[in-house]
């Protein structure tokens, strides 16, 4: 028996989804931006009610563990950890990027996507991103994505160079998704144009562009079936970045003034 509650709070809008044994998914979303903490329990409860599942019937709690908004990540992960702890059930951490890639794949076809590149805006030309290859070929991998370039922090320019030099030559389309499009659409377009591969560029539609718990729930379902779970204390965020203070400490640029103010 598998009944999973999955939480996705790493982007602008929070959502919660329940996936049941038969693979059906029930989702509830926050209607206002960045109200993750206020809404998280309410939307979780709504999703459970939709699914007609009592919280005590849950077998796992999943959370999108990042990358994304640090605050959002913490709200989802803390809630998942604590629900797991109190209900006595295991947790599952899902990558927000992998979740975005899968979400994009559901709407894509062989013609519209060979590679999928979820890009999350990390400001000042920074992104959290990864590149996956879409599998449409009949077989065990059908309808899944296979990692090509690892998930990490990339400067948008570096990511584009990598994609255009290594992935684009295969000829297929590159489907960009994630809120990184909103910030870097022009930069992405320009890079594809000047690389002479603008016909290979596709942007995901807005309604599938942002993190959603439905996709996280589907991935969690596969992980649960494969026994890939953790105890609540081991469910940890994936920030993909040190705090600014730690970065500066490492670089030796922690200025005296900032140290005294203690305000990083």
């Amino acid at each position: 028996m598998i009944n999973i509650l999955a939480l996705e709070t790493t982007g602008k809008y929070g959502s919660a989804a329940v996936i049941t044994e038969d693979g059906r998914v029930f989702c509830a979303s926050s209607e206002t931006e960045m109200n993750h903490l206020r809404d998280i329990i309410t939307i979780s409860d709504e999703a459970l009610k939709e699914a007609r599942i009592d919280k005590r019937e849950l077998t796992h709690i999943a959370a999108s563990r990042g990358p994304g908004s640090f605050t959002g990540i913490r709200i989802g992960v803390t809630t998942a950890r604590t629900l797991g702890q109190m209900l006595g059930i295991p947790c599952i951490g899902v990558s927000s990027l992998e979740s975005l890639a899968n979400q994009a794949l559901e709407r894509a076809s062989r013609e519209s996507a060979l590679y999928i590149a979820p890009v999350i805006n990390a400001r000042r030309h920074q992104t959290y991103a990864g590149v996956w290859k879409a599998c449409f070929t009949y077989g065990p991998d059908e309808g899944t994505v296979i990692p090509v370039f690892g998930e990490k922090q990339y400067m948008i320019e570096d990511l584009l160079e990598l994609i255009i030099s290594d992935a684009a030559p295969c000829g297929g389309k590159v489907l960009f998704t994630g809120d990184g499009i909103d910030a870097y659409q022009d930069i992405i377009t320009e890079a594809f144009v000047s690389g002479g591969v603008s016909d290979q560029l596709v942007f995901a539609d807005e309604e599938i562009r942002y993190q959603n718990a439905v996709s996280a729930a589907r991935i969690a379902f596969r992980n649960a079936a494969a026994g890939q779970t953790v105890s609540y204390n081991d469910l940890l965020p994936e920030y993909m970045r040190l705090s600014e203070a730690e970065q500066r400490l490492r670089e030796g640029t922690l200025s005296d003034k900032i140290r005294k103010a203690g305000q990083i």
Binding site: R74, T82, Q85, A245, E246, L254, R259, G262
Partner: peptide, 26 residues
């Protein structure tokens, strides 16, 4: 943890709370 920064660093404090909270409840 915060001493090396000369004061409480909010981002580090938040990360640490998350790692500790459930264990503290137990």
């Amino acid at each position: 943890i915060h001493t090396q920064f000369g004061g409480v660093v909010p981002e580090i404090a938040s990360r640490r709370h998350l790692e500790k909270i459930n264990d503290c409840v137990d």
